[in-house]
Amino acid sequence: MMRTTPSRPVSVEGVFPELAAHRGRTTRLHPRPGRPGMRDSHVGGPMLWPAGEPWPVCDEPHQPETEGYAPDEIRRARAAGAWLASLSWPGGGTPGEGGSVPFVGLAQFFRRDIPGLAAGPDGADLVQLFRCPLTHGAYLERRYVLRWRRAAETETAEDFLAAPPQLPLLRWEDELPEPCVLHPEQVVTYPWAEDDTLPAPLIARIDAWDDAQTAQHGREAPSYQSDLSIPPGWRVGGFPSCASTGPLTVDCASCATPTPMRLLLTAGGDELDGDSHSWVPLEDRDPSLQRRDAIRFDRTLATPTRLRFGRDRDLHVFTCPATPGHPPRWLLA
Rank of each mutant, 00 (worst) to 15 (best):
D312T: 00
R291N: 08
R291A: 10
L301I: 06
T305D: 04
L272W: 00
R313Y: 11
L301E: 00
Q290K: 13
P304W: 01
D314T: 12
F297E: 10
R291V: 05
D298K: 02
S288F: 04
L289D: 13
S276F: 06
R313C: 03
D314A: 07
P281N: 09
D312A: 03
D298V: 05
S276A: 11
Q290V: 10
H316T: 12
I295D: 07
L301C: 09
R313P: 01
L282Q: 12
L272I: 01
H277R: 05
L301Q: 05
D312I: 03
E283N: 07
T305N: 08
L315K: 06
R285M: 05
F309R: 10
D293N: 05
L282H: 05
L282V: 12
P287Y: 06
W279C: 14
R308D: 04
H316Y: 02
R292D: 13
D312P: 00
A302S: 10
D284V: 00
R306P: 01
D275I: 04
G310K: 15
W279H: 04
T303G: 10
E271P: 03
L307V: 01
R308N: 11
L282P: 01
R285N: 06
D275M: 08
G274E: 11
S288Q: 12
L315W: 04
L307F: 02
R292A: 14
A294N: 01
D298S: 10
A294C: 08
D293H: 06
R291E: 12
F297D: 04
R291L: 08
D286Q: 13
R285W: 02
G274I: 13
D273H: 15
R313N: 12
R291C: 09
D286M: 12
R296D: 13
L301V: 02
H316N: 15
R306F: 01
D275F: 01
D314N: 15
Q290R: 15
